[in-house]
Every structure is written in structure tokens, then in C-alpha cells.
């Protein structure tokens, strides 16, 4: 079984509630580490402008590059649900090694501002999943733009699109995510 994310890019307003709720739940201080991130995309020239957001975290890939890259065996993929987790006690620390970060095309591995920071990243709130709750970001999204669950069930509910603005699907890594992508369209002159 593989747990994954669904993201409705057409609904996202870039409000960052998911980011802040995640920091509170997992007690991540303000600073460079952020398990969940929001990227703003702006294209075009006034007044023909296109804007989208991409809310990202770790995509808990089917073939995670970070697991293969870690020389200390600190990153593992759980058999029961495919969630990729890090054992900070084994992590060498950022001052010595950042191979996981270099290997990940999605920037998922995170490091705090402290000296030789150990890697931390989205764990899909497995503590909450065990209680039958959705991850804190999903349960908090004011736009209901996020979902999480067994990826097969998500595909059955939302379809199997793996593309979105500012996202590149890696066929090798197979990130566990599906999207409702935002379509580029002109807002000038009222064409719908």
C-alpha cells in the first residue's frame, strides 16, 4: 500500500495555512526548515498575467532517491504504507552530508538553522493517519484543495493526472501525488 497526496491547484490561493498548520503540529520553528512549502508562479506581462501556486511537501516516492542517496541508512520507506521517514539519530547532519537534498528534485529534505542540523521532512502525519485522521495540512486547508490517502483510492476519486504548473513528474522516482492542474488562460478581455 502507498499513501500519497492529492492537490487541486485550481483551488489553491497561496494562503500558506497548510505550511503554518504543519509547523505548529510538528513543532518546527520559524526558519529554513519547512516540511510543507508553497511556490508562487507568476508569468506574463501586465495585464495578461497568469498566477498559480504549487503547495508541496515530500511526495513519498515509490522509488525514493533520498533513500538510495543516504550513506547512513537514515532514510527508510515504510513497508506498510510507503511513507518515507528519517531516523535523525542516524543522520550525519547537514554540515557533513546533504546527499538526500541533492538527490531530491522536489526539495523535500529540510534542515533547521542549528549547527549540523539533522534532516527532517513531511512524514504524512502518520501519527494522525493511525488515528483515522487526515494529515494536518489536509484537515486544515480552507479551500479543501488537499487530500491524502491510499494513492489507488485517490486516483479512483480524483483521476490520475500527474502534471501541474511548476511540477515535473519523475517517471523514475514515481512521486505519490496526483493533481487537478491549473490551466493557463488569459484573463484579458473576458474570454472564458
Amino acid at each position: 500500500m502507498q499513501i500519497g497526496f492529492y492537490f487541486d491547484q485550481t483551488r489553491c490561493t497561496g494562503c500558506y495555512t497548510c505550511v503554518v498548520a504543519c509547523k505548529d503540529w510538528h513543532n518546527v520553528p520559524a526558519g529554513p526548515a519547512s516540511w510543507r512549502r508553497v511556490k508562487t508562479i507568476e508569468e506574463g506581462k501586465f495585464p495578461d498575467v497568469f498566477v498559480a501556486w504549487l503547495a508541496t511537501s515530500c511526495y513519498h516516492c515509490a522509488n525514493p532517491a533520498c533513500v538510495a542517496a543516504c550513506p547512513a541508512g537514515a532514510i527508510t520507506k515504510r513497508k506498510e504504507d510507503g511513507i518515507v521517514v528519517v531516523d535523525q539519530a542516524r543522520c550525519l547532519g547537514k554540515d557533513k552530508c546533504d546527499l538526500c537534498l541533492q538527490s531530491c528534485p522536489y526539495g523535500a529534505p529540510q534542515f533547521g538553522a542549528e549547527k549540523n542540523a539533522k534532516m527532517q521532512m513531511c512524514n504524512l502525519c502518520f501519527d494522525r493517519l493511525e488515528e483515522g485522521k487526515k494529515p494536518i495540512c489536509v484537515a486544515g486547508c480552507p479551500m479543501r484543495a488537499l487530500d491524502a490517502g491510499p494513492i489507488d483510492e485517490l486516483r479512483a476519486q480524483y483521476g490520475d493526472k500527474t502534471e501541474a504548473v511548476a511540477f515535473d513528474y519523475s517517471a523514475d522516482l514515481k512521486p505519490s501525488v496526483i493533481f487537478k492542474p491549473k490551466r493557463k488562460r488569459s484573463l484579458v478581455g473576458g474570454r472564458k
Binding site: 500558506y16 495555512t17 505548529d24 485522521k133 486544515g140
Partner: peptide
């Protein structure tokens, strides 16, 4: 830590501001 409304819809979900209220 904080969560938001997990009861009946319409859920009264907080925005980022109050999700940071602990700080």
C-alpha cells in the same frame, strides 16, 4: 498544538493567522 474545526460541515476552518496563535 492546534487543529481546526473537524466537526460537521460547514467546517469553520481557520486561516494561517490563527493557526499560528500558539506563537
Amino acid at each position: 498544538r492546534l487543529e481546526t474545526d473537524d466537526g460537521d460541515e460547514p467546517q469553520l476552518r481557520n486561516c494561517l493567522r490563527c493557526r499560528a496563535y500558539r506563537q
